[in-house]
Design a protein around this nucleic acid. Structure first.
Length: 1012
RNA sequence: GGGCGUAUAGCUCAGUGGUAGAGCACUAUGUUGACAUCGUAGGGGUCGCAAGUUCAAUCCUUGCUACGCCCACCA
């Protein structure tokens, strides 16, 4: 197949991806092979690919393709997340656009609509992942609300409940009044906003007075509206200003509620007046203070409804004019906050804030301006309201302990290591995790509420019902039947509170027990935490110690479903692929997802979910800003793929991914990697047009020519660097290693060096008697330009040098394609096939073998080629600086001792360095250019051609550079402390460097002297 | 208030206890049959500041400055 002149990434991408997928090569059947497993962070099912996904998935694909090439049973689990809040919001927004809303539908109807939307848009992101070239196992694509996955979720909830690790509790929760659901601590984002600090007088009741004589206590607040539900005023127990009134009461303005003055350490005497109003139902601190003061959560007054509008408190003391107002000003309409301030001001309860204007006059303000750290919901974007509700909580602190331990003892390796501290810090201070959400889209909590038994009531504030937790209705029916001592048929299950409240339900079922299903769904992260095992067959495949599961160093695995020799069943998918080998995620979901996976994985599987956790940073806009829709600086990865190709984008991501740093977007760099792909394309095209084709060996071919021996050694070194980099998860180092090899070593030098070989006709083996020529050269005798190209002797049975070179070049190109494939899968696969001869390749590159050159680096060849490179560079540089045409063929005089070394290279040097005749011995008298290469001076006579002064200046400059180094080395070696105390190797190196540099300086000096 | 990260060439970033590298940009130059999405050559950095450790510091330690991120209930 002839390689096209033009490299067209789009055409290649469209061709190979479907081929790979349809032929099942993303997970070839390798039952005997050691496993390698990564689970993909499931993207939001209705989302689309953003630049962060591009980074995340590129890195994973590199590792999966690499391990697949290394022969592993590489499994990349893929699927999508139902993303409860996000998805429900999208669908609700769609309804809003049609002047419709969720509550116009039943729960079933609405959820049906979400499913429809999921079906409609759910393919978007998976299509986009394919465009990026990601080689996931699509045949096992999953969704967090798939039936089997939901079973896992239910089991986890029920088990945790039965293990007393999930409980229901009434306490303050972060409530999003826009989405009307509870959210977890992690979903709250605090940001500073400008606000005010108001000071109020709370009059003391019963004529009490402070020692200072005042008949009120001053309190200050940033949230005046909550005073409608104040239940105390707290002062520090040792604050002498207030000790006399502790235990007495104040009468709250507006509501007239009598509340006690209590002593609590929470009150900071240094702050404001030292007295603080306590609203246990609307402030996390106050909640704790209230509890300490003996107020049960059920007694705590609540003055806001789910949308943060004022409602009547239990004691009925909120004036009518407040009912229904929003908590604060919204859409330019004043809310309860503004009205409270107004009424307090009118009543003389507001202590004004005094400032002086520029004329020194005092000015009164209602409040002091102040920056307030305010909690916002990360999805809804509105201020979070601490709200008193019953929610489900997970005892995260218990689950966190083993996860801490796993990192400490190395079961989980976090890369980069700096994140360990963050891991520990968060895990060690972890709070109960609120997992219930007041949404319709998600995993419904498997709890049903039944009446309390008589002995279950603690106090009058307790709810009437208790939860019964089970995986399904049959199970809960059985539990309830036992609990209530009635036949299972007498347990009636209703789905909603509305249904329960319907006329007749209770009367029709008189004598039976009615259970009402919990209305809430689970936090999305509760389910995605199970991804590493829920996607592999759990809970059907329970985790059992499996003797045939092998660790590192194992050679074979029994095939799934087969029976191994020992008679033990072959490992299940779960057994084979759990723990996963690696998890790659952005650090932004470290707590949301990674930490929870670790907790759940260890708890339910008894083993960590993954051996290594790699955390990468954010992809930022070119100016370093975070990308966001509102800023309008979002870069669409699909656009970059269209423009530069998926390979280029992928390579960019890899090359920029150094550990512990964010990536700044840089289109020019993506373009550069597109150019790199083009470069490779053209190199392959050149190779092909010179009779170079696919290699027929995996091991390096036998080679006699230094240039071939050299490039084979370079492959070996590159491979080692690449393997090391990928082992260390240094994607940048890996990308740079292969980039440098392809462009610099292979294209710039190797292909240039073999051109003279390829251009000669292919003489039959044995006809080129080169030994003679070499021997002649060794004598130091002059060789003129007409001497036939000397060729080193051939070993073994016969390849002439053209054939050998073609073979080696074909092999090297094959190795390049394999090594580059994880980074640039498309162009490499295309070239892999394009380079093949008539028969074609017997397998696709995606399942090729990772290089195993079984070749040592040939030091002799390496030295020789490096000398050629040094000579050529010196020649080019000198010509350039002296203004000599680069194409000018200049005769050279080499020292006689170099005859043996130079003679075989003459044709190469003629071509690459544009050398004229090679002569050995002393150069003729007269002006000449002097090249100093590795300590040898080569004279290039240029009488009358060059500007002597220019050459002098050039040499002087070179001498200056070398002298500087010599001076530095001499200084160091002259320092007795250095010689005595430095490591012997360092001293030795300094000595040899000095010898070398001094020699070079001497030669340069000599060359200068010759010019007069 | 804690924790973390980053400061290296004009830009974006690697890197090492022994006087620094890449890509892009820049300058000069090039129609030598792979490639101008290219070749060749070149300029450009007291490695944020200060002190310390060391024979030797861009690298280790401490402090400072600047920027960024995360966590935390300051009314």
């Amino acid at each position: 197949m002839t390689i096209d002149k033009n490299f067209d990434p789009a055409a290649i991408e469209a061709k190979w991806y479907p081929h790979w997928e349809e032929s099942g090569q993303f997970r070839p059947k390798r039952p005997e092979a050691p496993p390698y497993t990564i689970v993909n962070p499931p993207p939001n099912v209705t989302g689309s690919l953003h630049i962060g996904h591009a980074l995340d998935n590129t890195l994973q694909d590199i590792m999966i393709r690499y391990e697949r090439l290394r022969g592993k049973d590489a499994l990349w689990v893929v699927g999508t997340d139902h993303a409860g809040i996000a998805t429900q919001m999208v669908v609700e927004r769609q309804l809003e656009e049609k002047q419709d809303k969720r509550t116009n539908y039943t729960r079933e109807e609405f959820v049906e609509k979400v499913w429809e939307w999921k079906e409609e848009s759910g393919g978007t992101i998976t299509r986009q992942l394919r465009r990026l070239g990601c080689s996931m196992d699509w045949s096992r694509e999953q969704f967090t609300m798939d039936e089997h996955f939901s079973r896992a979720v239910l089991k986890v909830f029920v088990d945790l409940y039965n293990q007393d690790l999930i409980y229901r509790d009434k306490r303050l929760v972060n409530w999003d009044p826009k989405l009307k659901t509870a959210i977890s601590d992690l979903e709250v984002e605090t940001s500073d906003i400008k606000g005010h600090f108001w000071h109020f007088k709370y009059p003391l009741a019963d004529g009490a007075k402070l020692d200072s004589g005042e008949d009120y206590i001053e309190v200050a607040t940033t949230r005046p509206e909550t005073m409608l539900a104040d239940m105390a005023v707290a002062v520090h127990p040792s604050d002498e200003r207030y000790t006399s009134v502790i235990g007495k009461h104040v009468v709250l303005p507006i509501t007239g509620r009598r509340v006690p003055v209590i002593a609590d350490e929470h009150a900071d005497p240094e702050l404001g007046s030292g007295a603080v109003k306590i609203t246990p139902g609307h402030d996390f601190n106050d909640f704790d203070v209230g509890k300490r003061a003996g107020i049960a959560p059920g007694e705590m007054l609540n003055m806001l409804d789910g949308e943060a509008n004022v409602c009547q408190t239990a004691d009925g003391l909120v004036p009518e004019e407040f009912i229904g107002l929003h908590r604060f000003k919204r859409d330019k309409v004043d809310g309860a906050r503004e009205l409270v301030v107004q009424r307090l001001k009118e009543g003389g309860f507001l202590i004004p804030h005094i400032t002086k204007n520029k004329d020194g006059e005092e000015v009164e303000h209602d409040a002091e301006p102040r920056t307030i750290a305010t909690p916002f919901g990360d999805r809804g974007g509105v201020v979070i309201e601490p709200w008193l509700t019953d929610q489900w909580y997970v005892k995260a602190d218990v689950l966190a302990q083993p996860a801490i331990e796993a990192v400490k003892n190395g079961d989980i390796e976090i890369v980069p290591k700096t994140w360990e501290k963050t891991w520990f810090n968060w895990m060690e201070n972890i709070q109960p995790w609120c997992v219930s959400r007041q949404l319709w889209w998600g995993h419904r909590i498997p709890a049903w509420y039944g009446p309390k038994l008589d002995d279950e009531f603690n106090d009058e504030h307790d709810s009437e019902r208790v939860p019964l937790v089970a995986r399904n209705e049959d199970e809960v029916r059985a539990i309830a039947a036992k609990r209530y001592s009635v036949p299972p048929d007498d347990i009636i299950i209703v789905d909603t509170e509305e249904e329960y409240a319907l006329e007749g339900v209770k009367t029709e079922n008189a004598g039976k027990e009615i259970l009402v299903r919990d209305q809430d769904v689970l936090d999305t992260w509760f389910s995605s935490a199970l991804w590493p095992f829920g996607t592999l067959g759990w809970p059907e495949e329970e985790p059992t110690p499996n003797p045939s599961r092998k660790r590192e160093g194992s050679e074979t695995y029994a095939a799934e479903g087969e029976v191994s020799r020992s008679g033990v069943g072959a490992p299940s998918l779960l057994q084979k692929h759990y723990p996963n080998d690696l998890l790659i995620s952005g650090f932004d979901i470290l707590f949301f997802w990674d930490a929870r996976m670790a907790m759940q994985g260890i708890h339910f599987m008894g083993e960590v979910p993954w051996r290594r956790l790699y955390l990468h940073g954010l992809v930022r806009a070119a100016d370093g800003q975070k990308m966001s829709k509102s800023k309008g600086n979002v870069v669409d990865p699909l656009g970059l793929i269209d423009q530069y190709g998926a390979d280029a984008l992928r390579f960019f991501m890899a090359a920029m991914e150094s550990q512990g740093r964010d990536i700044k977007m840089d289109d020019k760099r993506v373009e550069g990697y597109r150019n790199f792909a083009t470069k490779l394309w053209n190199a392959a095209r050149f190779a092909q047009s010179n009779g170079i084709g696919a290699s027929d060996t995996l091991a390096a071919p036998e080679a006699t020519l230094p240039v071939n021996r050299w490039i084979i050694g370079e492959v070996t070194e590159t491979l080692a660097a690449l393997d090391k980099a990928l082992e260390d998860l240094r994607f940048d180092a890996a990308a740079n290693a292969i980039y440098h090899f392809v462009w610099d070593n292979f294209c710039d030098w190797y292909l240039e060096l073999i051109k003279p070989i390829l251009n000669q006709s292919s003489p039959p083996v044995g006809e080129v008697a080169s030994a003679e020529a070499s021997a002649k050269a060794d004598d130091g005798g002059g060789l003129d330009n007409d001497t036939p190209t000397p060729t080193p002797p051939h070993k073994g049975e016969g390849l002439n040098e053209v054939d050998e070179t073609r073979k080696v070049a074909g092999w090297v190109l094959d190795q390049i394609l394999v090594m580059l494939h994880p980074f640039m899968p498309f162009v490499t696969e295309e070239l892999w096939h394009a380079m093949a001869g008539g028969e074609g390749r017997s397998y696709d590159l995606i399942v090729a073998k990772w290089p195993n050159p079984r070749a040592e680096v040939d030091a002799e060849a390496k030295a020789e080629i490096e000398w050629v490179i040094g000579f050529t560079s010196a020649m080019r540089s000198a010509k350039n600086e002296l203004g000599i045409a680069p194409g000018a063929k200049l005769d050279c005089w080499f020292p006689a001792v170099m005859g043996g070394k130079v003679a075989p290279l003459i044709s190469t040097l003629e071509r690459v360095a544009r050398m004229g005749a090679a002569n050995f011995g002393d150069a003729p008298e007269g002006a000449s250019m002097q090249l100093v290469v590795e300590g040898q001076t080569i004279a290039v006579p240029l009488e009358g051609i060059i500007d002597i002064d220019a050459e002098k200046a050039r040499l002087a400059k070179a001498l200056e550079g070398v002298s500087k180094e010599v001076k530095s080395l001499e200084g160091r070696l002259g320092n007795a402390n250095f010689v005595e105390r430095a490591k012997p190797e360092a001293v030795e190196k300094a000595r040899s460097d000095l010898a070398e540099k001094s020699a070079e300086a001497d030669r340069l000096q000599a060359a200068l002297d010759r010019l007069g």
